[in-house]
C-alpha cells in the first residue's frame, strides 16, 4: 500500500507564555494547554492533501511520549489520518531516541514518504527529521514549502537563508515542513466522533528494541535576561536626536 508516515509531537500550545519553574528544574507544564506541534500539523495536512489527490492510499500518524499523547493522536485522526501508532515512553525522549523509534516504525510500515515538522516549538532542537533520514539512509529535504511527487521522485522546494532552493530526491524520502507549506484544516465535530473508532495502537518503546538513553544532562533552566526599560519619544525629530545621542546614525 502507498503509505505516508507522519510524526507528531505533543507540545505546550504556541499561545502559552512559557515560564521557568522557580527552582530551575524545568518549565511550568501543569495545567497548561497542550497541542500538536504546529509544524507537525502542517506535516499531517500535507500528507492528507497528497492522499486526497490520489498520491497515497494511507496516512499513518505516530508519536512518542506518555499516555497523554493519545489526545494529540486523536486530534490527528480527526483531521483525517487513517490510523495512529503510539510509542509509549515516559520522561525525556531525545531526538536521536525519537529517530530510532521512528525508524522501527518505518521498517514495519514501509512508507514511501515520511513527513515531520522542521522543529518542535518546545525544545526548538530541529533535529529529529534529519537524524531519522540519516539512520534510514534515505534523502532528506528540510524546511519544505512545496512538495511535488511524480513517479518515484519528489521535487521539493525548501526555504533556505538565501531564498528558495529546489531539490529532487528519489523516494522513499523524508521531508520536514516549514510554515508556508500549507494551512492545516480545522477539525469538525463529526470527525472527532469518527476518530474515536479509528485504530490506535500502543507500542512501549522497549518492545521496539530502542533504549530511552538520555545523553544530555539538563543541568538547569533559567528565564532569559530581561532588557532594560526603554524611553518613549514624541515624534520623528526626537527619535533622530535619540539615535544620534547613541551614536547609531
Amino acid at each position: 500500500m502507498k503509505r505516508i508516515l507522519v510524526g507528531i509531537k505533543r507540545v505546550v500550545d504556541y499561545n502559552v507564555r512559557v515560564r521557568v519553574k522557580p527552582d530551575g528544574t524545568g518549565v511550568v507544564t501543569d495545567g497548561v494547554k497542550m497541542s500538536i506541534n504546529p509544524f507537525d500539523e502542517i506535516a499531517l495536512e500535507e500528507a492528507l492533501r497528497i492522499k486526497e489527490r490520489g498520491g497515497a492510499e494511507e496516512v499513518v500518524i505516530a508519536t512518542i511520549g506518555p499516555a497523554e499523547c493519545q489526545q494529540q493522536l486523536r486530534t490527528a485522526l480527526a483531521m483525517g489520518a487513517d490510523r495512529a501508532l503510539h510509542v509509549q515512553a515516559d520522561g525525556v525522549v531525545e531526538p536521536l531516541v525519537a529517530a530510532r523509534a521512528l525508524l522501527k516504525l518505518i521498517e514495519r510500515e514501509q512508507p514511501f514518504l515520511v513527513i515531520v515538522g522542521k522543529q518542535a516549538i518546545d525544545d526548538d532542537n530541529s533535529q529529529t527529521g534529519p537524524m531519522l533520514a540519516a539512520l534510514w539512509n534515505r534523502p532528506q529535504v528540510t524546511f519544505a514549502s512545496k512538495v511535488e511527487l511524480s513517479d518515484g521522485k519528489a521535487r521539493v522546494t525548501r526555504e533556505v537563508d538565501a531564498g528558495l532552493e529546489t531539490l529532487e530526491v528519489d523516494l522513499p524520502a523524508l521531508v520536514t515542513t516549514d510554515l508556508r507549506l500549507n494551512e492545516p484544516r480545522y477539525v469538525k465535530l463529526p470527525d472527532i466522533m469518527k476518530a474515536k473508532k479509528k485504530p490506535l495502537e500502543t507500542l512501549p518503546l522497549n518492545t521496539l528494541g530502542v533504549e530511552a538513553k538520555q545523553q544530555l544532562k539538563l543541568v538547569k533552566f533559567e528565564p532569559p535576561a530581561q532588557r532594560q526599560k526603554g524611553i518613549r519619544v514624541k515624534d520623528a525629530g526626537e527619535l533622530v536626536e535619540a539615535l544620534k545621542k547613541k551614536g547609531l546614525i
Binding site: 531526538p95 536521536l96 522542521k118 530541529s126 534529519p130 537524524m131 533520514a133 540519516a134 532528506q140
Partner: peptide, 23 residues
Amino acid sequence: STTFGKDLMPRVAALLGTAQISD
C-alpha cells in the same frame, strides 16, 4: 545554526550516534 547547519548537523550526529546541542 543557519538553514545549512540545521540541515546538516543532525544528520552528522545521527551517523555518529551522538546527541546534538542545537543553538
